[in-house]
């Protein structure tokens, strides 16, 4: 098994307040990794250290060692623009740009100069939308606004947008929490299909979802990584009492 991301002794502070304590974790290339844990335990914070989105929060400070394919992503030589092109992100609330569906998907390839002509761009857009399972629904209305789609379609558009720059890792922060069960099922299917091509990390509050889509699960509590292992083990045979309490619904 190849390790795509390795994090070692990571601490994150918001001003004086510590949100992540001494977290070490290895993310596999071929697996879907789920982050679970009660609200406020730092799942989003840790996820955002992996593509340096914490840089956009003025008060945030990250310590520790995080490597993507062995490269220190917080080193001075790391180009954040390149990093974020390699580590894509899908947010909790679908956030398509107020542009056409086509332009939403073409946005990333355009700023990174991935297509050298209209036909290449068309191909990227079609391929990304196909992989995101949206092509059939939107192929006749590519010039409609992305914001005119349903919530579930918007989220798949955001996934297509992330896929379009051909990332190596996709981070998803509760991608289904704003969606109904049918749209959720479609996204889960999609995650299943994307597995292997991209390393995927997904934050979720839904235990069944974590059990369904992931191979590895990490349980966070109060900024610490309590337990990390095969999803099967975590759900059927947790080692830590806190994990047991959480997955059996005793708190959180």
């Amino acid at each position: 098994m190849t390790q795509k991301i390795t994090a070692h002794d990571v601490n994150v502070f918001y001003g004086e307040k510590q949100a992540i304590r001494q977290v070490s974790i290895d993310i596999d290339q071929e697996d879907v990794t789920a982050f679970i844990g009660p609200s406020g335990c730092g799942k989003s914070t840790f996820l955002r250290t992996l593509n340096r989105m914490n840089d956009t929060v003025a008060s945030a400070r990250v310590e520790g060692d995080i490597r993507l394919d062995g490269e220190d992503i917080y080193s001075k030589d790391m180009d954040v623009v390149q990093l974020r092109a390699r580590v894509g992100m899908v947010f909790q609330k679908p956030n398509p740009f107020p542009k056409s569906i086509y332009e939403n998907v073409a946005y990333g390839p355009r700023i990174h100069g991935l297509a050298s002509g209209k036909s290449e761009m068309d191909a990227i857009v079609e391929q990304s939308l196909t992989r995101a399972g949206l092509w059939a629904e939107v192929k006749d209305r590519l010039s409609d606004s992305g914001t005119a789609l349903s919530g579930g379609q918007q989220q798949r558009l955001c996934i297509a947008r992330a896929i379009a720059v051909d990332p190596e890792v996709i981070l998803m922060d509760e991608p289904c929490s704003a969606l109904d069960p049918i749209a959720t099922a479609r996204i889960e299917e999609l995650i299943h299909d994307l597995r292997g091509r991209y390393a995927i990390v997904i934050v979720t509050h839904n235990m069944q979802q974590a059990a369904r889509v992931s191979q590895k699960t990490a349980f966070f509590h109060l900024g610490e990584l309590v337990e990390y292992g095969d999803t099967n083990d975590i759900f059927t045979n947790p080692r830590e009492p806190r994990t047991t309490d959480y997955i059996t619904g005793r708190y959180g």
């Binding site: 990093l83 956030n95 720059v165």
Partner: peptide, 27 residues
């Protein structure tokens, strides 16, 4: 313009000024 627009663009690897020109100002 919701902050999620800006984050969405930055997370694609756009620089702040690209984000302003291509997403925030049009929006």
């Amino acid at each position: 313009v919701p902050n999620s627009m800006r984050d969405g663009s930055l997370a694609m690897g756009a620089t702040p000024s690209e984000t302003i020109r291509k997403v925030l100002v049009p929006a």
